[in-house]
Every structure is written in C-alpha cells, then in structure tokens.
Simulated assay, not measured.
Amino acid sequence: MRPVTMFTGQWADMPFDTLCSKMSSWGYDGLEIACWGEHLNIDKAVESDAYVRSLKDTMEKNHLQCHAIGNHLAGQLVCSRNDERFDVFAPAELHGQPEKMRAWAIDQMKKAAVVARLLGASVVTGFTGSSIWEGWYSFPPVSDEWIEAGYAQFADLWNPILDVYEQNGIKFALEVHPTEIAFDYWTTVRTLDAIRHRPSFGINFDPSHLYWQGIAPEQFIYDFKDRIYHVHMKDAMLNPGPRGGLLGSHITFGDMRRGWNFVSLGRGGVNFERIIRALNDIGYEGPLSVEWEDSGMEREAGAQEALAFVRRMDFKKSGVAFDKAMSNN
C-alpha cells in the first residue's frame, strides 16, 4: 500500500521531535517536512551535516521516513508581486524589499533540491507564485500580451531553479492552487508549455483546490498522469446558500458564512474513491500526504481521524478482471 504521510506545515509551531513522536504513535509512515517554523531550516541543512543527521535520527527513532519536503512560502515569492503582505514569508531584514525577497526565495528553492537529496526525499513540493494571478478576472481588461509576459517571467525565473533540481535528481511538484501560475486545468497546460515540459517540473495533486472551483479532481489526474509527482489528501466542503459565494467574501476560513471551507478528510465533498481509482490507473505509488486544514476541528483528533480515513480508502489495483474465471470454462 502507499505510505501515508503528514505534511508538517500546519504543525510548524510544534517542536520537530514532539511532532515525530505524535505522528509515529498515531501510525503515520512518514512526513512531508515543511521548510519553516520549527521543522526544517534550509540554510542550516546545507551547511551542517550534523543538523541533517539529527533530523534523520529523530525520524528513524520514530520509524518515520521523509518522502518529500515542502517549501511553499519561499516558492510563493519567486514570481509574485511582493508587496507588504508577503513580508511574513521572508527574513525580517528583507521586508519591504521585493526584489531582495525574490532573490532570497530563488536561492532557497535551489537549496531545497540539495536538502531533499540529503534527507533521502525525491520531491520538493511548493508554490511558484504568479505575477498575473490578479488578472484572473479580466477587468480592467487584460491583454494576451500581459498574460504571456507572466508565463515568460515564470519560465525565466524557474528554469535556472529546475537546473539545480535536475543536477540533484529531485523533482519539483507545484501545488496547483489559487495565486499560483497554475491554478486550474488550462493554466496548468500553459505552465507546462512555458517550460517546455521539463521532466523535473510536475504536480503536487491536491483535490481540495480543484473541487470548490468545479473541476473534477479525478479527471485532472488522468489529464496530467505523467506529472503527478506527489499527492495531498485534503477535503473541502461546499456551503451553498443564498449568501455564500465561491470567492470567499473576505471571510476567514472556518467561518460557516463562507461558500466553502477546507475540512478534515471524509467530512467534505471530495470523492476520494474516484481519486484512488484514478491514481491506481496511472500507476502512482508515492505517498498519500495528509494536509490537515480544518479550522473548526481540534487538530490532533483530526489528524488521527484523517489517517484512519486514508487507510480505509486506499487499495491496490486488481491484477485480474473480475470475470476472468468465466473464460476458463
């Protein structure tokens, strides 16, 4: 069966050894380690063999493996228009300096490939940012040239990063997500075209971001079957009604006035049965990484419930047709 891991981004306030102990006791197989908070310092990992060894020792002591590392926050700064909202993603000494933040982020994304290799992971998950996300609704009118310039900027900034991934034998998996250069089917097509389908760049499949947009997650798997490098297990709940719209209404996650919310696995509307069958069909054998986000539920109970849900939902593909025996008569 596929290993079930936990993405540590939503647990970044918890010391790494405490987190590993909890995840192991609950039955998780491994981690997708976030590169922020208490869990993984990219610079320190590049500079110190002892630091890397300490992380590996902590995981080994708790019978956990590192299948991927997640560097979403730095990745966001690579292509975004870095105003004051983005300061929290960069070191304090760079706040208010957009281009210095971008340069720092590019360096961090390159180093992430090295660190993934050192930790024995094969994938770095994350974001790319986007200079054209704000043009998703074409008013004021958005020209084709403006959009093309955004994809060209993405290619110019990310191709040198991907060179480092290829040198280290690591793949980058973009979480297709609002505010990224790829946030739905068609933008994913254009993103892959922009970098000429480099094999080092693929997808961290997360159905929750597709579901509320009205995109069938399982179809997305088939459409990009050769690019599914990592899988997030995350659910979302639609909250239809006379007031709640899909754009979120500037209302905080967890508030039931919103038109949709992220919820613990199995409590939303994502059809994971179809997703597992689609993953089986394309031959995906990598981890199923729980990204637990539910502002209305206590997280430790939620993490344990999510693990049980994934274990129950996952299954191997049959090696024989159910009616094969009939042909033996």
Rank of each mutant, 00 (worst) to 15 (best):
T128N: 03
D294T: 01
A45N: 06
L77W: 15
G241R: 10
R81V: 08
F139V: 11
G269V: 11
G296R: 14
F183K: 00
N271Y: 03
K234D: 00
W104C: 00
L192G: 00
I195T: 09
A12T: 11
A45D: 03
K61V: 04
D29S: 05
V164C: 11
R2C: 12
G245N: 13
K44H: 01
H177F: 11
N280E: 05
F322W: 13
W26A: 13
N82A: 15
E148Y: 08
S80F: 13
R190N: 04
S122A: 08
S48F: 02
L94F: 13
V290G: 03
A50H: 11
H63R: 11
R312L: 13
R258L: 05
N168I: 05
D255R: 12
F172L: 05
A236S: 14
G248L: 00
M14L: 12
S289R: 07
A45V: 10
D226V: 01
W11M: 04
A12I: 01
A303W: 01
G302M: 04
V46W: 02
S54K: 02
M109S: 12
Q76M: 11
S143Y: 02
G126I: 01
L94Q: 07
G120M: 15
Q76N: 12
F154H: 12
A325P: 07
A112C: 10
D294F: 13
G120C: 10
A152G: 01
R258T: 11
F322Q: 10
R312E: 14
E293S: 07
E305S: 09
R2I: 09
F89Y: 15
N271M: 03
L210D: 07
D156W: 00
G259C: 10
D43M: 08
D43W: 00
K234I: 01
N159S: 15
Q153Y: 13
A303P: 05
K110H: 08
G286I: 13
D49F: 08
V114D: 04
M1F: 02
E134V: 03
Q97P: 12
R243P: 00
S21A: 10
F183R: 04
P207A: 02
W260F: 14
F16M: 05
L118G: 06
T5C: 06
N329D: 07
G286Y: 15
G75D: 03
L307R: 04
P242T: 02
V52A: 06
I69Q: 07
A321V: 06
K225Q: 12
G169D: 03
M6Y: 05
Q76G: 07
A182V: 11
A194S: 14
A116E: 13
T188E: 09
V231P: 04
M23S: 03
R258E: 15
V88Q: 08
F16R: 00
D163K: 14
V310C: 07
Q108K: 15
L279G: 05
L174M: 09
T252G: 12
G169I: 06
F220H: 02
K225W: 02
E60Y: 04
I282M: 06
K56V: 13
R277W: 12
L238W: 05
G96I: 07
Y165K: 11
L119H: 01
V78A: 06
L55F: 06
I170R: 01
M313Q: 10
K22L: 08
G120I: 13
R227L: 07
A92L: 02
T191K: 07
D13A: 07
V176E: 01
V78G: 05
V176Y: 01
C35Y: 02
G96H: 14
G120E: 11
L94N: 06
S138A: 09
F139R: 09
